[in-house]
Design a protein around this nucleic acid. Structure first.
Lengths: 110, 110
DNA sequence: CATTGTCATCGACTATCGTCGATACTCGAT
DNA sequence: ATCGAGTATCGACGATAGTCGATGACAATG
């Protein structure tokens, strides 16, 4: 804690969380899902953004990879929704980096 | 607000803030500066990280560009310290993306 | 003025990212 | 079994980012 308050491993975990929101499209995707509440399909999300379907699917996969978003297949479509637990853990990670909260061992959110 | 709760411009601003912390080295740099309180020079920061001096300087410039960090030249050395105003505004931006706070016109932090 | 110490910048290289079009895959319906 | 709708994946491209070593800029010191 004297030399480096955050060890490399925890710093990489936090960086991966921030990296998930380092693109304006992913920021908008998460904002849309958060505001809408109920799950949305890839087609519905693509209709609200000026990018192609494959790109939307790509960004959604990135959000799923870090746990911010959860996906559930229903018939031929995939329904995406926010993962409340990961989303709540994210601002606290920001507080840790800013020195307003003690570092915790960054448990994954199931 | 019905189609996209965050317009593209605000999303890009928030994404640039998150992108500033999308690298583990920058996360550690900000954590070191936050924990230490008083300003630190480039050499002192380089001594605590396993990377070269030019790389540290490069990352510090990125943190200054988004306003998270402030730099003050004193003699032959540059002293870096956290910018409390920008650092406080960052978690609220996270809340906006997560839908827990209404979007605000993202004013820059002097 | 010359030297030393500190930092920023430059050039180069590699790796990763964002995007697209095309294609493959999955599932329900006919 | 076939078809169509909805997604995911692939391959490719340009753009950006992270890193390093070397060099340049600048201030303090002698």
């Amino acid at each position: 804690m004297d030399v480096v308050p955050l060890d490399r491993e925890l710093a990489e975990t936090y960086a991966s969380w921030f990296r998930a929101l380092a693109d304006p499209t992913r920021v908008q995707l998460l904002a849309i899902l958060s505001a809408h509440g109920e799950p949305l399909s890839v087609g519905e999300l693509t209709a609200r953004l000026p990018i192609g379907q494959s790109t939307v699917s790509h960004h959604l996969a990135a959000l799923v990879a870090v746990g911010f978003v959860h996906v559930r297949r229903q018939g031929t479509s995939s329904l995406y929704s926010v993962n409340p637990r990961c989303v709540e853990r994210f601002p606290s990670a920001a507080d840790v980096v800013m020195g307003r909260r003690p570092p915790e061992p960054a448990q994954a959110c199931g």
